[in-house]
């Protein structure tokens, strides 16, 4: 099972490290990262394999959202199937 992590907010040092550290701690394998900074606005999309997560998926999603909130970042973790079903026939 794969999940998509999206991170948006004002750019600052260490955003990717923040997210990837949590991924490593929870045993989520990062497959792809796409990231842009547009006039101080940071946007990142990360595809992660969550098949072997150490913690339940929902807890993983909550942790990342919480981490983001503390840094004023909007972080969402969503199962990839919602994107597949909407955009692929």
């Amino acid at each position: 099972m794969k999940a998509v992590i999206t991170v948006t907010g004002r750019d600052s040092v260490g955003i990717i490290s923040l997210v990837s550290t949590e991924c490593a701690a929870s045993n989520a394998n990062i497959l792809e990262i796409s990231q842009t900074v547009l006039s101080e606005y940071f946007a990142m999309i990360m595809l992660v394999d969550v098949e072997n997560l150490k913690i339940p998926f929902i807890e993983f999603a909550d942790r990342l959202t919480e981490l983001g909130r503390a840094r004023n970042l909007d972080i969402h973790v969503m199962h990839e199937d919602i994107f597949n079903s909407m955009h692929r026939i």
């Binding site: 998509v4 999206t6 999309i45 990839e80």
Partner: peptide, 8 residues
């Protein structure tokens, strides 16, 4: 990978 604009 999924298309970035589709995700957004």
């Amino acid at each position: 990978m999924l298309n970035t604009s589709d995700i957004l």
